[in-house]
Design a protein around this nucleic acid. Structure first.
Lengths: 343, 343
DNA sequence: ATAAAAATTGCAATCGATTGCGTAAAATAT
DNA sequence: ATATTTTACGCAATCGATTGCAATTTTTAT
């Protein structure tokens, strides 16, 4: 690439025989510049193909008009949707997004956060990685006076803004739905319990059983069945039990539920009559499996928009909000073919 | 948020009774600073919780170590995968990504590009939106001395770095596969022809027909069947023709192919025996429909990595590469159940 | 012990835009 | 025509880090 000397406000000023101050003011719609000179300046800026150097501007102004986002994986449906939502609301207010992925690795997450602090972003939006064990780096964000918004997977002990799903309630409704449809032995595929979202989903499961006076059976609760493969593996074990379950709630993801469905097909176990299946996330494919999979929609794009709006609302309020604000979005149970049994 | 005065190199210098120059040098691993003072400086920086102000640093250095990415939609599988790939290769070299989505709207695309120029990004990576009609804004990027890498959907007339898929060849292979499997009347669902990728896919289709001496039937070529709904609509029309097709190549996307499959199911037309279906993109769901859908994998994450590597390769080369470099990735035909007919 | 070379550190300008304060010019009032 | 208020613009400092060059100190060579 050839090095191009980009035109600055000084170039414009020189050409017009005025000061950079005036140019700056004209370009910022300051009222203390004559309308005629403003027009002239804008015209000249245009001719010279001037583009403001945002770095210099931000340095002087003390902020970056930039929001940092840290997610485990950019190319995971839920996260890319949330990001799209954030982008939509923030872009129109002149903010840019810097995106990092932690790859579910704690150390990289720390790195990402530090990079963003270095960038002097105005806000960091984060969903912590699965193996996060402490939150010093997040505290650090706060210490630097940077707004912090946690979403979905949050460190509950940190008093920050949070946008979450009501996982507990969603799980409760899903499992209640299974019970009401006649399923009696409902297994749970659970995720890493260090993540709050998975704890909440388990709690919802337990509460639903309790509410409907269904006994909890320990051997029907399987840890860490996060992926399709792990979901499949767990299902094989469950269905080979002396008393196999008649429904499986894959609280980790729809991928896990897909694994369940495939194993059921292979083992020639009929869904939904012999086995009910419920996933989590409302991935696109859940609609088109046969039978289609009952799941839970998290309104991910909406969640992103909520995050963006929350940020603006927060910087607009002069007063520091004393208590941490938590916005909880209620997910929706999408009932489909995989849970159609009526006992 | 409380305003926090962040510690600068001057604070460190003051505390140690030295100059900011030395602090800067120490923090940048310059060889011209005594090892002892460096240690002292680093220790003090740590105590004071110092974080370099990247804005100031970049302003001085004249670059931003930032790459701007513009895509139609962040939350579209292909794009989020490419972005993930870019992020992976660039992050480890200390580069950050600023992501924008054009929403398939030309004007917003221009806005995005301008914002990125303002940000003084070192490189802009873009896949143009469907309704782009001119490329002045891309020329503008070049004029500002910013590296420009186009991918997937590219403006061919612009001499820039490009990373593309060999859409023509992939389509050729897909359609050849259909012909070899005994399908005789193959319909094409095509995308907006102002996008080169869709033109190429059509060319591949035509070339395959020609190569195998199959006559092109105009009424079997349907414009603009991009989404699932449009794919379904097109299929209804096609299958109600006096001479309906016996295969449909949904060159636009797998979503379109899904629409085809659903309509076929509704109309009780057997796939693959009565109707062959081939999609494009290898979306996750193509594997789990019944029958599973033959499609084309674009190696999207790999494509992203290629883009990142290309950028570094380019800045490493001192000489300006004269001719525009084009990297073409060969997609792979994934043969599945939806095209299993043997005539 | 002295000269020369090398290693450290400081000084001051620079990157480009912004902004408080001061002054000249224009507009209005007396 | 003179005094007063507005308006428009310039001056210079500032944001924080970097870096060429000069000055000083330390090390090595003679």
């Amino acid at each position: 690439m050839k090095k191009v000397k980009r035109t600055t406000i000084y170039d414009i000023a020189a050409k017009l025989g005025i000061t950079a101050s005036s140019v700056s003011r004209a370009l910022n719609n300051s009222s203390q510049v004559n309308e005629k000179t403003r027009e002239l300046i804008i015209k000249t800026a245009d001719e010279l193909n001037y583009k403001r150097n945002t770095l210099a501007s931000n340095l002087r102004k003390g902020h970056s008009k930039t929001i940092g986002v840290v997610v485990p994986r950019i190319n995971q449906n839920f996260f890319s949707n949330v990001i799209a939502g954030i982008e939509e609301t923030t872009y129109q207010k002149g903010y840019n997004l810097i995106i990092c992925q932690s790859g579910e690795v704690h150390d990289k997450e720390i790195q990402c956060v530090n990079t963003l602090i270095n960038q002097h972003v105005d806000c960091i939006v984060i969903s912590v990685s699965a193996d996060s064990y402490d939150y010093q780096h997040l505290q650090n964000v706060l210490d630097h006076g940077i707004q912090l918004i946690q979403f979905d997977r949050v460190a509950e002990e940190l008093e920050t803004l949070k946008v979450i799903n009501d996982n507990e309630q969603a799980s409760f409704e899903a499992v209640s739905h299974l019970i009401e449809n006649g399923y009696k032995r409902i297994a749970l595929l659970e995720g890493p319990q260090n993540l709050n979202i998975f704890r909440q989903r388990k709690n919802g499961y337990l509460r639903a059983l309790e509410t409907h006076k269904v006994k909890v059976i320990d051997e029907l609760v399987v840890e860490n069945a996060w992926t399709k493969e792990l979901g499949a593996e767990a299902t094989r074990k469950l269905l080979n039990l002396p008393h196999p379950p008649d429904a499986i709630f894959a609280s980790t993801s729809d991928f896990s539920a897909l694994g369940v469905l495939e194993v059921a097909n292979i083992m020639n176990i009929k869904v939904p009559s012999e086995l009910g299946i419920c996933g989590y996330s409302n991935e696109a494919f859940t609609e088109i499996t046969s039978p289609s999979i009952t799941t839970i929609d998290q309104f991910s794009v909406y969640m992103g928009k909520t995050i963006g709006n929350l940020f603006f609302q927060e910087i607009a309020s002069i007063e520091v909000s004393v208590k941490p604000k938590i916005i909880s979005i209620k997910p929706e149970l999408i009932i489909r073919g995989s849970t159609a049994k009526k006992g």
